[in-house]
């Protein structure tokens, strides 16, 4: 989104810059010309984009199979729901609190399992996600409301000055958060942290042998990813005004996983494409709803056959072209 203009202005070609600018304008104008129903679809597109970005850190950048990501999302949503309904803390104040709660949960839960590899980690994270959901259903300490969930969550507001209660306002809230996250994540991709994550994904042993603290960086990815999922949970809870365990099922984790697979591992534009595929297309093709799973399965198979790296895999390179260095000269 607007991030790309600022971050990569030195090297992206004009056409791509214009495309990014066009997309930003499209996102900004869309809610004023579309009906509330479509604005709400746009909102959920935003939620999935944010969740996709958060899982992209863990799965896309570091290559850790996390099939329990809905668990972190749930922790964020329930933190907001409980603290807001029980103590009346404003939603926007709870935004960072939810992120911290989900991060802390990820830190505590993932510390002991972080050394697991590939499918083993996958199984454990499935278990983690399910434990969170079952715990919510069982209503610990009478906090989570059991299978019914928590009701009566406030709209986000800033002391009466700014009350976010309409579809359009929610749409802008989520997309501003998404845009800020994209800016931050693009910065991270180009930093030593993003590189370290990618190195771990490529070859863990070589990463460790090149001075990368593999364990800490994996944990960092989980903590950051969970934090972003917590933010998504916070906004989701205040939009729906209620949260219930059925929003955070294993199926939800699978959807997030497929966002990354469809878009391309570690590719931020890919996440947006993937999130659109997950949230928009079912709405567009609502008349064919009964075939949805069939089409979904077929699309996944075709993807694996023809574009195994995703629709928009991350392009690398171009890092050597710096204005201050002029054109690169061959050394031979």
């Amino acid at each position: 989104m607007e991030d790309k203009k600022t971050e990569e202005s030195g090297r992206i070609p004009g056409s791509r810059k214009n495309a990014v600018f066009g997309i930003v304008i499209l996102f900004a104008v869309f809610p004023f010309i579309a009906g509330d129903y479509y604005v709400d679809i746009g909102f959920f597109f935003g939620i999935y984009a944010l969740l996709g970005l958060s899982l992209n850190i863990v799965l896309g950048e570091v290559g850790l199979f996390d099939l329990g990501h809905a668990g972190f999302y749930a922790i964020g949503a329930y933190t907001t729901a409980i603290l807001n309904t029980q103590f009346g803390i404003p939603i926007l104040v709870l935004l960072p609190v939810s992120a911290l709660a989900a991060s802390l949960f990820a830190y505590v839960v993932c510390s002991p399992i972080i050394h697991l590899k590939g499918d083993y980690l996958c199984i454990v994270t499935i278990g983690m996600g399910e434990i969170v959901r079952l715990a919510l259903i069982n209503n610990p300490f009478d906090l989570t409301g059991g299978p019914n969930g928590v009701f009566g969550i406030d709209f986000p507001s800033l002391g009466g000055l700014l009350v976010i209660d309409s579809s359009i306002e929610f749409y802008f809230l989520i997309w501003i958060v998404v845009a800020l996250s994209i800016i931050g994540l693009l910065q991270l991709q180009q930093s030593r942290i993003g590189r370290a994550w990618n190195c771990i994904r490529e070859d863990e042993v070589a990463a460790e042998a090149n001075g990368i603290d593999v364990r800490s960086f994996k944990l960092l990815a989980f903590v950051l990813g969970a934090g972003l999922a917590g933010v998504a949970g916070n906004i989701y809870a205040s939009k729906l005004m209620c949260v219930s365990p059925e929003s955070f099922t294993f199926w939800e984790s699978c959807l997030l996983f497929s966002i990354i697979l469809i878009g391309g591992m570690g590719s931020i534009p890919g996440v947006l494409i993937g999130a659109a595929a997950i949230s928009l297309f079912p709405e567009i093709f609502r008349p064919f709803a009964m075939f949805r799973m069939l089409v979904f399965g077929a699309v996944m198979i075709l993807m694996m056959m023809f574009r195994p790296a995703g629709i928009l895999p991350r392009k690398r390179g171009g890092m050597g072209f710096r204005p201050d260095h002029g054109n690169p000269v061959d050394d031979k």
Partner: peptide, 15 residues
């Protein structure tokens, strides 16, 4: 053992 999908420059930057 290189980071095969990363560019040569990125490989060295990892060092």
């Amino acid at each position: 053992r290189l980071f095969s999908n990363m560019t040569c420059l990125e490989n060295i930057m990892a060092g």
